[in-house]
Design a binder for these strands. Structure first.
Lengths: 348, 348
DNA sequence: CTGAAAGCGCTAACAG
DNA sequence: CTGTTAGCGCTTTCAG
């Protein structure tokens, strides 16, 4: 702690720099920010003084208090980064957000929706927040953030008061895939769905999924299938991973009365289902057709050319970022809807 | 802007809450933080007043100025998230960092080492920084951060003054793999290396890689191979991806005088090389042996059971996180070295 | 247990 | 172009 004191002592403030340069603090400030008229002479004097004193630069904490802005964009994601970033779609979206943040000179603060460490969501300093990742229990976070008066943007979430939505045509896109399968003559289809809530327990898709699904994306995609196949069964996967898809696939395709087509709610799940099919000695698409969702790069799909709906993940992220900054500027950006595009691959 | 004013007006401060509750500001502050003795009565009065006024909670910007801490841990990664997060190792490490950050009640600020938006690295408010991701041009960032007096931890980087290193036994581990191949009788080996610098151009591995390699990890892994095979050729990949590995693999295995073994500097690259081998009609390991590095999950390796060195990525991340907080506490944590473990798979 | 006072370090108005 | 003034909103002594 004596250490601390000496560290403090050795850390000069802007005022100290100004004093040494023989100018006012405000002038010194301008010399640093370059946001106002300062003569070259003066600026050099200030810079020299700063150099001499070993000035660390304006303290961002003080600056953000004064300005009322911290230059930070919060991004709330699912519990574990490991999970969230396993799916290339989430990364692509984050990349889109990062693009816009970078352009706006803001940095990204990663916040997790997690159980214990919710402190940070309540107390992190940031200017706006984007909620992403099919997070299944956003409500608490939203309540806290609303209380904080934080501008909020949510990607693929149920409409919430005071939260700007950036949406994807999940339902229509899923219906497109379902129709595609029906046109190919498939009668019995099964769905491998993303987790319906944050319990994370895989299992049979419950008949009352409409009531139970807390995940917006999962529910909408189920609705899309239901629009075409009023009755269907399936499994809920443990997450959006190949392994989870494989497990669900084994359960579905291993049964006596196996379906002739599987609608997986993500490409990773679809890859897993295909792997299960292979292990069971089934050919795709001859014995069983499989469709995915997202349009991940073939490289990420084990080289499989999936039939899927390609969603504009990066654009979605950029839109979310832009919307956040727009809210921050006091504008009233409109809610946006992105559409996915059908891509026929070799799996149907 | 009138809007702004009214928004301000409607946003009460702690002082306003205190006034309404009929207590002092300091008492109100304690009522919120719970960090001191406040009677239950008083606390309830304060909370009620806050509720009534719609108080958003203590402003973190002001708090962090006052406290001198922002509760933020910066993480500097490569230019594009898309690239950095394509490799599961980086995600695992980030997850390790996030674990420790969460435990310490800190949030993670993602900073990119990028060209243009370097502003944030110079001006983001944070308490300490971890530099990760084999970033090839950390020097500039380090200079800026050092100037800011920021505690720094670097994962797998050349030793730098004032930066605490968290290292991996890259050289020894690569040598282990090389020895394994030599024991199997391989004479001619080729290396597929990670990018040597940030130019990102793939191509033949230059003979003077020792001089040219700016990436610590790539260089050390090359040294490890050189310890066993004094002379070897190879390719520099465009990044740590399957596709880049495939391209390098095609170049290497397509030549007349193709090697009998390929040492890939990451598991993703190894998977790509194997894919190239398959496309060229070569069997692995019969026609060509392939080893990787990292120990990614089989799920991420297209189901291939690679011979590789398993590195403790999550532990590395945790150690980096712990070290950062330790520096922040004024301690002098020691530099740490993690070791990788040989895992024989089916590719040699 | 509560209150008063004193800034944290910076920046934005407004005069000159 | 430069200086003066006045806080941003909170937390931490230090007294009572």
């Amino acid at each position: 702690m004596t250490d601390d004191a000496s560290a403090r002592a050795v850390r000069p403030t802007l005022a100290a720099v100004a004093a040494r340069a023989g100018v006012s603090a405000s002038t010194a400030s301008l010399a640093f920010s370059g946001a106002g008229p300062v003569s070259v002479e003066t600026r050099e004097k200030v810079l020299a003084a700063a150099e001499a004193l070993g000035y660390a630069g304006p303290d961002p904490r003080a600056a953000s208090l004064r300005r009322g802005r911290s230059g930070v964009l919060g991004v709330v994601i699912e519990d574990r980064l490991r999970e969230a970033f396993r799916d290339p779609m989430n990364i692509a979206m984050l990349d889109g957000i990062a693009d816009e943040a970078g352009a706006a000179g803001a940095a990204l603060l990663l916040l997790t929706d997690a159980a214990g460490g919710r402190t940070d969501i309540a107390s992190a300093s940031m200017d706006a927040v984007i909620l992403v990742g099919c997070s299944t229990r956003l409500d608490d976070s939203v309540a806290i953030l609303r209380q904080r008066g934080m501008p909020m943007v949510a990607v693929e979430a149920d409409a919430m008061d005071g939260v700007l939505g950036i949406d994807l045509d999940n339902r229509a896109a899923s219906a497109t895939l379902a129709r595609h399968l029906r046109e190919l003559g498939h009668d019995r289809v099964a769905v491998v769905s993303l987790p319906l809530d944050d319990s994370g327990e895989p299992g049979r898709l419950p008949g009352d999924w409409r009531l139970r699904a807390r995940s917006h994306t999962a529910r909408e995609r189920l609705e899309g299938v239901a629009d075409v196949y009023p009755a269907f069964g399936g499994r809920v996967a443990e997450g959006s991973t190949i392994e989870a898809g494989r497990e669900a696939g084994m359960a579905i395709l291993g049964e006596a009365d196996a379906p002739t087509a599987v609608i997986a709610q993500s490409d990773l799940l679809a890859v897993g289902v295909i792997r299960a099919a292979e292990e069971l000695g089934l050919r795709v698409p001859e014995d069983v057709a499989v469709v995915g969702f997202d349009g991940i790069r073939r490289d990420d799909a084990n080289g499989i050319d999936l039939t899927t709906m390609v969603q504009p993940a990066v654009a979605k992220g950029r839109a979310a970022g832009r919307a956040a900054f727009s809210l921050l500027d006091g504008d009233e950006p409109a809610r946006q809807l992105f559409t996915s595009e059908f891509r026929r691959g070799a799996t149907t």
